[in-house]
Design a protein around this nucleic acid. Sequence first.
DNA 1: GCGGCAACGATTGCATGCAAACTTTGCGGA
DNA 2: TCCGCAAAGTTTGCATGCAATCGTTGCCGC
Lengths: 249, 249
Amino acid sequence: MQLLSEREADPLDSARGHATRQATERLRELILDGGLAPGSRISERMVQERYGISRTPLREALKILSVEGLVAIYPNRGAVVALLSLEELQAAFELLAALDGAAGELAADRASDATIAEIAALHDEMVRHYEARQLQDYFRVNKAIHLAIVDAAANPAISRVYRSESARVDRYRYRGNRDPGVWARSIRQHEQILDALRMRHGALLRETLVSHRRSGFDLARRVLDEDLAHMPNQAVVPVNEPAPGAGRD
Amino acid sequence: MQLLSEREADPLDSARGHATRQATERLRELILDGGLAPGSRISERMVQERYGISRTPLREALKILSVEGLVAIYPNRGAVVALLSLEELQAAFELLAALDGAAGELAADRASDATIAEIAALHDEMVRHYEARQLQDYFRVNKAIHLAIVDAAANPAISRVYRSESARVDRYRYRGNRDPGVWARSIRQHEQILDALRMRHGALLRETLVSHRRSGFDLARRVLDEDLAHMPNQAVVPVNEPAPGAGRD
DNA sequence: GCGGCAACGATTGCATGCAAACTTTGCGGA
DNA sequence: TCCGCAAAGTTTGCATGCAATCGTTGCCGC
């Protein structure tokens, strides 16, 4: 399967030098959008046949995703979509809380008035989605608000780690909130967050963000429990070699 | 160059399934120990000839290191050892401060008495190296103390990010402290840190760690400035394509 | 019937070849 | 002398082949 033939068919996507990048993004999307369920094997042959990505760039992509924590590679035995244990989920949320808090404190100092106005606009949009009970839109804007605050800290290292860690747990974050009371409380927390940001009160913004994140963990924990319950026993971690160095944390 | 011949020569190192891992660790060590200077090119041919690593595992290793931030890959133009700008150094230290603080707060709750005793022993050892003005030993134990506190938080995600980010800036951390006054102040800060940990006073431990980290940045900033001054113009970032996605932050 | 083992098929790990992109060198013109 | 350009040389990107390992199936002995 020559890429040359593909290049004819889709000249935009397959310029030389982008096969690995494409493979990485493709797989990442598949994992994050649920196209590849946690625990499922990623066979090199399967990916090659279904997505026309040859093995070398695919293997490089898998190595990248394993560092990001989205897949686990077991030597001589292939890669599987990473599966979080409850302990790992809690660890990820504690890390995210630290990042939220630190970024909030920095953002209170560094965010421009325009940025704060944009975040306020996102907040209003989110509230509208809440009032209309539009869950998907609500989640999308909610996520954008937190990202905007982190980015307002003007710290690329924090933003990078936040995005990467956030991606690992998003699956468990954006499925809770069915309970009206919980949802309402989340809205109230967001109001406090916005107030603290508007006041540029760094310490307060940190506190509200951290406590908001803690609530988020309570929800995610339930989602994970459900997932584990609904999973018969199919993909409960390959045996033998505990894990490769470049695999899990 | 067949690996088979090498396997005969060194059967321990070259079991199948470990070439990429070996390449990654070898390169990481080289970069961290200064064997490969920041900004220097990593030619695939050069590595292949000098270390007997064939190109496929080498390329996978470079992809891994680029996610870790130790190398930057420029498409079609190869990889270079990552070079930090002042802004990136500051961002890294802010991230490390956040991790130190969060880990400290967790560690104050979670560390066992035995772990605290171990950290106290390390502290005493460090003070002895300080009194003997043994800079290298002092740095080594200093680093071990901070790692031990982070690990005492019992959060693998935080430990993982801390190690990775720490590695990126270690070059700039462990060369300052020539000034006796600065060195003495660092010792005093460490005493406060140990006191807070012994008291299991989470908030205080957080504060002392964050402020200690801030002092660390002031030193590192000077080291980076020196480095940049001493660097004629040789490796001041490849031109053209700003950077690949999998390169820098 | 069940546990262990051997052969087979499937899958990964890695070395390498070829083509594209980049870099350098050398030349001609201004 | 210096700039621009073209050809040669170098280096990277990727596809693929071969060998080693893993998983499975079927068989034999108990």
